[in-house]
Design a protein around this nucleic acid. Structure first.
Ligand SMILES: [Zn+2]
Ligand SMILES: [Zn+2]
Ligand SMILES: [Zn+2]
Ligand SMILES: [Zn+2]
Lengths: 171, 171
DNA sequence: ATCTGTAATGTTATAATATAACACTTTGCG
DNA sequence: CGCAAAGTGTTATATTATAACATTACAGAT
């Protein structure tokens, strides 16, 4: 197919200019691989929802997805989208950004995350998924001190990205 | 005036048995102090909402608050509660738990938080606000590496508290 | 190729959470 | 008191999400 990339998945920084069509291709390709491997069924709806989410690095709401699907044919009812989202969340292909009620594509769907953390620019609305072992460790140690057994964690950091700082969109 | 009080506010661990009426008293008292100091108006509605939120260490939804207010007199419309919540959030007297769409009292409303982090027990639904300088630092350093200017942060850790682990409510 | 059970999707209705817009009331202050 | 600002009431509606049940598509067995 395509040239074999040297680094299997070093996600590009979504705040910086980059060849985004490559993000989309990678995401779709790795989603297909993961589904095949685990016996998940990546149906048309599910795949299309994933594609829509990956069209940008901005988090996309369920009803925005619905809207888009509507423009491409018959507009489905909300459960269709929410079911696709549930599947994608379960499969680890997307993340929900709780502070936005919206969804973004996971940038490393193969790894089982310990923790993934999000930088959310309030100006351009781009969301970057970050992995940070040291935060993982501090969180684990915090939980251990409190004898708390972790099942999920979500760190959402809102602010202004470098690009928006430079272009004075920041106030 | 320094270090006259032994420890002005060492919040008790909400997962452990404790004299909760003391939590409520402390919270209300310190809310009044803070409002007086900053010229905020702690009206009846606002105060009552804060009390309701402090009735337990479980996060309370806006409509649950509404329900409670209804039992105590005339049931107000949603905006009344949301406005009170907005005020309390602004004043730093409560926090919103995004993963639950619900609200809990802040356990140290005087300090300006750098970060506060939440342990959320999925069994007893108690939420504990935690402060951790080392996580603060890691988050700050992460943001610096990415040249990201932080305005808000929310870390929500879900799982099982010690008490619920011991009493086999955990599965 | 047909059958068959499960998974996926369609459909309708409704729940749960949150806000907009405008009217009215209270409060602090000159 | 009289005024302006802040707070609250009221009505309507927006936004996000799920329940319940009918129908269809799909993979594996015969
Ligand atoms: Zn990209
Ligand atoms: Zn930005
Ligand atoms: Zn308590
Ligand atoms: Zn518990």
């Amino acid at each position: 197919m395509r040239t074999v990339t040297p680094m299997p998945k070093l996600a590009s920084n979504p705040f910086k200019k980059h060849q985004h069509s490559q993000c989309i291709r990678d995401a779709l390709h790795s989603a297909e691989g993961l589904c095949k491997k685990n016996g998940f069924r990546l149906s048309n709806v599910r795949k299309r929802v994933l594609e829509l989410i990956w069209e940008s690095h901005q988090a996309l709401g369920a009803y925005a997805i619905l809207e888009q699907l509507g423009k491409e044919g018959v507009k489905p009812a909300p459960p269709t989208v929410y079911r696709a989202l549930d599947f994608l969340l379960e499969a680890g292909l997307v993340h929900r950004i709780n502070s936005l009620n919206a969804y973004i594509g996971c940038n490393h769907p193969k790894d089982s995350h310990h923790g993934s953390y999000f930088l959310i620019c309030q100006h351009c609305h781009i969301v970057a998924e970050i992995h940070d072992k040291r935060i993982d460790e501090e969180v684990a140690s915090l939980a251990e001190r409190e004898r708390f057994s972790i099942s999920e964690r979500a760190l959402e950091i809102s602010g202004t990205c470098q690009h928006c700082q430079e272009t004075q969109h920041a106030r």
